[in-house]
Lab assay of single mutants.
Amino acid sequence: VTTYKLVINGKTLKGETTTKAVDAETAEKAFKQYANDNGVDAVWTYDDATKTFTVTEMV
């Protein structure tokens, strides 16, 4: 189990959160659900070296 981080650069929601998951795909599903629940529709990137997902909402 690995800890993954999500950085949110949204128009109305900004911040960071983490989740523990067995792999990046599982973490991504959890983070996308979190973003969807909070109304963030954005572009996703992932950095495997830092285990960090970044979501940037387009203006």
Rank of each mutant, 00 (worst) to 15 (best):
V1I: 12
V1D: 09
V1M: 14
V1C: 15
T2I: 13
T2R: 08
T2A: 10
T2K: 11
T2Q: 12
T2P: 05
K5E: 02
K5L: 07
K5S: 05
L6F: 05
L6V: 03
V7P: 00
N9R: 09
G10C: 15
K11Y: 08
K11Q: 10
K11H: 12
T12H: 13
T12I: 11
L13F: 15
L13P: 05
K14W: 12
K14R: 10
T17C: 15
T17G: 04
T17R: 12
T17D: 03
T18R: 05
T19S: 04
T19V: 14
T19K: 04
T19I: 15
K20N: 11
A21N: 02
A21I: 02
A21C: 06
A21R: 01
V22D: 05
V22S: 09
V22N: 07
V22T: 11
V22E: 08
D23N: 11
D23S: 08
D23K: 03
A24K: 15
A24F: 14
E25P: 08
T26C: 04
T26I: 05
T26Y: 04
E28M: 14
E28P: 00
K29D: 04
F31M: 02
F31Y: 01
F31G: 00
K32D: 01
K32Q: 07
K32N: 03
Q33F: 06
Q33D: 06
Y34P: 00
A35E: 02
N36L: 15
N36P: 07
D37P: 07
D37M: 15
D37N: 09
D37E: 12
D37W: 14
D37V: 13
N38K: 11
N38Y: 14
N38S: 10
N38G: 06
V40D: 04
D41A: 09
A42G: 15
A42S: 08
V43N: 08
V43R: 07
V43E: 08
W44F: 11
W44I: 04
W44V: 02
T45I: 07
T45P: 00
Y46H: 00
D47S: 04
D47A: 02
D48N: 06
D48W: 04
D48I: 05
T50D: 03
T50V: 04
K51F: 07
K51Q: 06
K51Y: 07
K51P: 00
K51S: 03
T52P: 00
T52M: 02
T52S: 03
T52A: 01
F53I: 03
F53L: 02
F53D: 00
T54A: 03
T54P: 00
T54H: 07
V55Y: 05
V55I: 13
V55N: 01
T56A: 05
T56Q: 07
E57M: 11
E57Y: 13
M58L: 12
M58I: 13
